[in-house]
Amino acid sequence: MEISARDALKAKNQSKQKRKISKTIIHCFVIVLGLVMLYPLLWMVSSSFKYPSEIFNSVSFFPAEWTFDNYTQGWAGVSGYTFGLFFSNTMLIVLLAIIGNVVACSMAAYAFAKLQFKFKPILFALMLVTLMLPFHVTVIPQYIMFNYLDWINTYYPLILPKFFAVEGFFVFLMVQFMRGIPNELVQAAEIDGSSKIMTYWYLILPLSIPALVTTMIFTFIWTWNDFFGQLLYISDIKLYTVAQGLRMFLDSAGESAWGPMFAMSTLSLIPLFGVFIFFQKYLIEGITTGGLKG
């Protein structure tokens, strides 16, 4: 039996139509699910503009009556210490952590990716092992050590380790990236008289900027979201971070002050969101190539 051209065309159109329908169904499904996922976040943001009485009853996105009271009330913080202080404290920690990670991890990565030295495979394997090490096996002696150095209630325990490339993820990420830089380039530079240090500074680092940016972004996110370290080492309210400020707010105001708490929570997420909006490409890159999670 012969299939006429018209029948074939009809079948093709039908399957095309079918595919269109199934695509529409998928679109609807992922849109609805996406909204469900974002709903708590959006609700929190909108609630930060609501009067307290409304927060408890309303499930809607839009405040019936807008107010900025939550923000002024929240920003005032607790007993004279404002969120302005907590934000600048956190920014300082984040900034120094970024510098530490970029410098120390890129140095280690350059050594692993481009230099030859004895015991390299063993040391590299060791680095990979530290990726999987739960921090709890080191945290108690570290605490004792920092306590002995009188560094409790300072930022040293939160910042200094970064200058020693303790975050193996970033070393790994940069090694992967630097391995992709052609050795011919490095050799050419060295024939022209470039020392290893100059090669690192003038060739490897500029070419590794995407990996460095990814490192900066993830250091930002992780340090911003870190709570355990801050809880452990910082108890002086003058040194509190945003996360600690939020937690103190929760403890002191209890569950009576959801409005200001939501306002400050929203503010605390804005820097993360900003990084996400402007550096999405690098974020996705970091997740897919280095297996870094947000």
């Binding site: 120390a104 140095m107 050594a111 570290q142 380790p161 020693f164």
Partner: peptide, 28 residues
């Protein structure tokens, strides 16, 4: 002469892994 430059760049990492990982692990 053969390995110095590699270890030079690795110095921060080595200090870190010794003082912040290996020794604390032994201690704990």
């Amino acid at each position: 002469k053969n390995n110095g430059i590699g270890y030079l760049f690795l110095t921060p990492w080595i200090i870190g892994i010794l003082t912040l990982t290996a020794i604390p692990m032994g201690a704990s």
